[in-house]
Design a protein around this nucleic acid. Structure first.
Lengths: 197, 197
DNA sequence: AAATAAAAATGAACAATGTTCAATTTTTTT
DNA sequence: AAAAAAATTGAACATTGTTCATTTTTATTT
């Protein structure tokens, strides 16, 4: 069996573990047992578990990008931004465990590195929204608009960590999808004001 | 030495460990070594490390509340909301490790519980801002305004996780304080629009 | 085809984690 | 002073990520 096949196999099996049992479901030994490969082989292939998780997160970002990119053509810029957000929230809610792992890695990744392809995917997702942003706020200078886009996306991204667990339920009865949509629409309305001012 | 003194001692020593070495600096054995008490004693006093961390996070929230509550009287409602946010960001940046632990626990606390006094502190912090919100948006119905307040606070809270590590620096050169202030002000501007509509 | 060399896979072993609990020490009560 | 109760202890357990000498497999050479 070739090296690629081993990696592919391990990644697939690992993904199943995460989907089924969350981040805790993914340990070197559980992956070894589920895949049939030894613990050592996992380390030969990926170096360490962090790298393995990073690959999983890259695939998650990829799936998100795939989903969002199908929405490019439809509707007005405003409608599109709302569609993006709804699709994003839907994706996160349907892939809670995978998305949790993304946040978990981001938070705990204090001095480790993100791979280039990973960073590129993040940028690509942001760029998807850029077009709609430009159409909505034509009179805002591009650097300023990109800044606002980052604020918007980072806020929504970080807020989405609340969608992956039930921690929020202990503080508020707010609907999670509503939460995200209110953030988007209030922010967009605010941008409209700042644009005219 | 009384039970209270032991707990107080352990909590203080634990807090030093977190401040100095971050969340990883706080383990049962390191706390045992730093405090002079055995590992077993820590468990007798707190049951488990999660409870200990929850106490640490409660104290962190307490310190934040303390700081924010000194700002109650000053300026207009709008100025006050900006002061709150700036004070919040300052607090987080000055207590990165402590605040990181708050986020870390929230994210990983999948089916565990928050103590009542902890939840109450969160509510109290939100209520601090309620007054300014009410003054700014008098024509928004109270339930709607509280909803928006929650969206605002939850967004800012979750965004603040980016302030505790350097993960964000790998994605963007955006200034962290600016990031939070832009979120607040754009959101507030948007609320003004929604109020009139 | 056999012998040799290179590469890959293995899993026992290590350090560090949270946690438990029988044994010990200390304190309180009788 | 003795007995009972309470508190403290730290060795031991299960589970992490990780390493690396050993074994097995594959490739190369004779």
């Amino acid at each position: 069996m070739s090296k690629d096949n081993i990696q592919e196999n391990l990644v697939n099996k690992g993904r199943d573990l995460i989907k089924k049992n969350g981040a805790e479901g993914l340990t070197a030994r559980k992956l070894s047992e589920a895949s049939g490969y030894s613990v050592g082989t996992i380390y030969n292939q990926f170096g360490n578990m962090d790298n393995f998780i990073l690959i999983q997160n890259y695939l998650t970002l990829d799936a998100l990008y795939e989903k969002l990119s199908t929405l490019q053509a439809s509707g007005t810029a405003y409608q599109r931004l709302n569609l993006y957000t709804q699709a994003f929230v839907d994706f996160v809610l349907k892939n809670k465990n995978l998305w949790f792992l993304v946040h978990s890695f981001h938070l705990n990744n204090n001095n480790r590195r993100f791979s280039k392809i990973y960073l590129r995917r993040v940028v690509q997702i942001t760029q998807l929204v850029e077009g709609a942003f430009k159409a909505l706020y034509p009179s805002i200078e591009t650097p300023e608009r990109i800044l606002m886009l980052q604020v918007m996306w980072l806020s929504l991204f970080s807020l989405s960590s609340f969608l992956t667990t039930d921690a929020l339920d202990k503080f508020s009865k707010i609907n999670k999808k509503t939460l995200c949509e209110l953030l988007l629409n209030t922010f967009l309305a605010g941008l409209k004001v700042l644009e005219k001012a």
